[in-house]
Design a protein around this nucleic acid. Structure first.
Lengths: 347, 347
DNA sequence: CTGAAAGCGCTTACAG
DNA sequence: CTGAAAGCGCTTACAG
């Protein structure tokens, strides 16, 4: 006895509208073959009863759950919350709901876990964020389970039905070229998390820019990070404590660039006078460091929305099975100049 | 024909184990009254068939969906991703899954929307993040819908069945007292988002500390922000451009404190020499600003885990209805000294 | 254009 | 300790 009347079900709507439940179902799912008058009557009845279809029942009986699962592992706070915001907006557009799952790819059986969760939950689609989008076991198991899925910035698109990428290599190239344009020749690079496809692409862009400018790649100027502040600080310090330190550093994301700024400050170096540092992402942190970061803006929210679009298209077109034409979406970028990079100081 | 054999269902397990489906159900749900031998046989059969119970069926037939919905609106990137991380860990412990929803509280009907989603999805529990935890219509509708829910740091706990709080007032008091201890008397405050209970509590702590020290509250030293960097920068600049600017500023979170640092720099002030600034949260940004922020560490991940614990307890105890003894959990804090606050410079 | 029946894969009383 | 039947609230063929 909670005071509220019992929740209306489809039979109640059918009774009130004087039709069969099947007709109610047709109206609610916008199926054809219902007279307009009947349709209106059903809608009115549903409204009068404040009818809300039950997801479990719909999911069990039909082939749509209106559920999308988003799997992630490591993801910077900025990336996760921006991506999730975009995904939620677009899920809302289509009446979908978003289940989030964190999956440790370093522990075995990740593929089974991801595919198992997707199957048990009957989700209509799966979003794989990096590094899961790039984890072959995960991708294969999910692909085998026959649920539509979209890979976010995968390094390898051989299994992909849907994927989404950004011109990471070109953006990294442009950023590096920008540093070269400022006169720098000893340009260090802090690579991103090795499991992320973007890390590889950004590194390649860096190499390409150096090559074009006729600057030999110096392995001592390349270090590895994990996309977080602390690893950026450590990698930056190591680079700067080397025998022939760089005059500029390109960190594969803003968090690591922020860490590198801290490292430089710890060594008594002024940024950008003594050392130029650039990042990648244009996340919030980029405007808070001192000096604020010159970086590349990546349209994370748009990418998230695009990934849901892709999934919905795939779901609609092939009625829930993965087979179907491959789809992808490509996103651009912008170079954002702030204060963390400056012309090479003449010695 | 996807190559994989059709997914096993409970009947398959029952047949292979030579028992009824009811017995399988009992074993899988760890119910009593099954002989150990039978139990083992069922477990073996389930394993052999790689049986995975279907959430929709279980949810429709029974009273548990193993789904928890987390609703949020504005939330800093740091807060969201930390809270979500904690919630996911604890959901995993109990075999639960997390649905995330963003709900704009400024648009009407928020309560209906939240309660409606919870009902349609048949979630077993609801987590209300601020400012939703503090929105009376939302709280009332959710309470009326009879689903267990937990409010995170609500300002008002009159309707609360479960809630969780932190000593925001005491932490703010301690932080302000710390600034007073450094010799500051003109201490500004940038309030947080007005819809968040924490904003009020932190302001009260600030007031209490001033009162205890015999410092009159100066309304011109109090400004409002929205918990984001930009609003902190704006509020900070306004404070500093006043006729009698503060010598120290307590911003109600780190993002706003970072903004205030930018504002100070824009006005040519050195932090902490000319101006001390402290934040709240100890988020990542606190170690990246220059100087790094003196702040208060809030155990966001622990709080998230605690909120799931509370929910699970409520679900277990009263079989899915909200009624039952109220529960709450209280969390502590730590003052974290970094470089953004310094003794008042003698003029 | 509309409906009666069966079924999705589980759990719930109830009976023994 | 175990099971046969009914039912959760929808959608799916199928029939008209």
């Amino acid at each position: 006895m909670d005071g509220s009347t019992r929740r209306a079900k489809i039979d109640d709507v059918a009774r009130l509208a004087g039709v069969s439940t099947k007709t109610v179902s047709r109206v609610l799912n916008n199926e054809p073959n219902v007279r307009e008058a009947t349709r209106a009557r059903v809608r009115a009845a549903a409204k009068a009863l404040n009818y809300m279809p039950d997801f479990s029942a719909r999911s069990l009986a039909g082939q749509k759950s209106y559920l999308i699962a988003m799997f992630y592992d490591t993801a910077s706070q900025a990336y996760l919350s921006q991506f999730q915001a975009g995904a939620l907006v677009q899920c809302g557009e289509y009446g979908y709901h978003l289940i989030v799952e964190r999956c440790d790819v370093s522990s075995p059986g990740a593929g089974q876990r991801v595919a198992g969760i997707a199957a048990r939950l009957r989700v209509d689609g799966v979003i794989l964020l990096p590094p899961l989008s790039n984890h072959s076991e995960v991708v294969q198991k999910v692909a085998a389970s026959d649920v539509p899925f979209v890979q976010i910035v995968p390094a390898d698109v051989s299994v992909a039905a849907c994927y989404l990428n950004m011109d990471d290599a070109r953006a990294a190239d442009e950023l590096t070229t920008y540093l070269i344009g400022l006169g720098h020749r000893r340009i260090g690079h802090i690579k991103g998390h090795p499991a992320h496809g973007a890390s590889v692409q950004r590194y390649q862009g860096y190499c390409a820019a150096l090559a074009r400018a006729g600057i030999a790649l110096d392995a001592l100027l390349v270090n590895e990070g994990l996309f977080d502040i602390r690893s950026g600080e450590k990698a930056g310090r190591e680079l700067l404590e080397g025998a022939h330190p760089p005059t500029a550093i390109f960190a594969a994301n803003d968090d690591m660039a922020a860490g590198a700024i801290n490292a430089a400050r710890g060594l008594g170096l002024d940024v950008p006078t003594d050392l130029s540092i650039v990042g990648f992402d244009d996340s919030q942190i980029a405007s808070v460091t001192y000096p604020p970061l010159t970086t590349v803006r990546q349209p994370i929210e748009d990418m998230a929305r695009g990934s849901v679009d892709l999934l919905i298209e795939a779901i609609k077109e092939n009625g829930g099975t993965r087979a179907g034409k491959p789809r992808f979406r490509h996103f651009g970028f912008d170079l954002v100049e702030r204060g963390s990079a400056a012309p090479l100081r003449k010695p």
